[in-house]
Design a protein around this nucleic acid. Structure first.
Lengths: 228, 228
DNA sequence: CGCGGCTGTCACGGAACTGACACACTCTTG
DNA sequence: CAAGAGTGTGTCAGTTCCGTGACAGCCGCG
């Protein structure tokens, strides 16, 4: 069954949403704050998150930004729930990468319709999401990396690492940050392991002239930058 | 022309709705009670039903429940018309499976907008009858798969799996997604079962040179892609 | 009731991937 | 230039992941 996570501090709203989703054949997972949200995400792997704008502690918007930074969670679509209808809020929400936006109060039907619309859009025939830098292209949908059309082979970890780099070009990341984002924050592995995977990436990229795309910043970490 | 059925005992309202729909290029079919509603459904096969809450005899809500039980009518979307805005009514309506809800009085423009919104999200694009990739062709109507004219034999599950793949080429699907889409969300089977069916698909496809059409993406799932 | 097709599960073995380590090399600092 | 910190690289064992054959349950059919 498809699981939807709601992050919302008001229990009555969670209950109402639970009823509406149940009728549509969707399971609801509930969290009242950011900490519970992380726990539920790990436990249930929800396919979509309903995020309240106002939360005690870390705000919903800030939580969305953090989820977007993490490779494990960034592919989960988010619908924002908000009491206010201010244009400025909408904009910062969309900038943070949310997929839709519902202002309270909303009807159960609207909620379900929007959820299903977002699910359709994000998992069935979504626009091909391709990251391109020069002749190097990474397609997140087909899990393919091509150099001038020729396919390059990567292992799962290398793929996640390269994907993360291509999503955040021109920025230096420490080994710890790369572990957080391409490995997930749960596991502990040696920081030097990152070096090894960087090496493997470079090895595969080198024959196609992308050798210098991943640069070492001594004492700081690594940077993906096709322009230097 | 698209036909909308209104089930409503007050003639003036039917007339007003008929005018509004006419301007929007929609045909109106009218029924004043449950019996007439069944007759009109059989005669006109409406694409959507506007159902008044209060009807003489069988109530609108009860009628919706009965329509939902019947395989012929359960796919027709329903919009409820109701005089009062009571939350309890809304909930039992949504539980019965209605798609939207309009409280009287409503403006013709709102009515048309909601009808079109419901039609948009319930009406799927006409399904493609034959899926073809090179010499491999799958006919969804006759349930046949041919390779250069020669027929290939598949079991029901394998057929659904192959059909899903051919409907969504060049995309990686996890075992869970494949189970959702080719098995349905209700049953629980082991994820590894997918592997076995992939194997069986490949076995049947291999003698005709389509061996590589289904690719393993380690750590992610499988991909149907005739081009690599 | 026996038969054959279809399906889901399991166990086994092999292949691919990963993380760790050792050592070589480079750069910085004083 | 020497020392030490930081990084590149080859290698390898453990682990995970996947392909595959075997098999038992189910169901429709004669």
């Amino acid at each position: 069954m498809r699981t939807i996570l709601i992050v919302e501090d008001e229990q009555p709203i969670r209950k109402m949403v639970g009823l509406a989703l149940g009728r549509a054949g969707l399971e609801l997972s509930e969290a009242a704050n950011a900490e519970q949200a992380y726990a539920e995400i790990n436990r249930k792997r929800p396919e979509l998150i309903l995020m309240d704008w106002m939360l005690p502690g870390i705000s919903g918007l800030e939580l969305v930004r953090r989820l977007q930074r993490d490779a494990i969670t960034q592919d989960i679509p988010v619908i924002m729930l908000t009491a206010r209808n201010e244009e400025s809020d909408r904009i910062s929400g969309f900038q943070a990468g949310i997929d839709d936006y519902i202002s309270k109060p909303f009807s159960p039907a609207e909620l379900v319709a929007r959820i299903q619309a977002v699910l359709r859009r994000t998992q069935q025939p979504p626009p091909v999401k391709t990251l391109e830098f020069g002749a190097l292209a990474l397609d997140t949908v087909s899990h393919r990396v091509t150099a001038s059309g020729e396919e390059l082979e990567f292992g799962p970890t290398e793929f996640r690492l390269l994907k993360f780099f291509m999503q955040h070009p021109d920025r230096v990341y420490s080994r710890a940050q790369l572990l957080d984002n391409a490995w997930g924050r749960t596991v502990y592995v040696e920081e030097r392991t990152v070096d090894v995977h960087i090496l493997r990436l470079r090895k595969t990229l080198a024959p196609h002239g992308f050798e210098h795309y991943i640069q070492t910043v001594r004492g700081a970490g690594y940077r993906f930058s096709p322009d230097s």
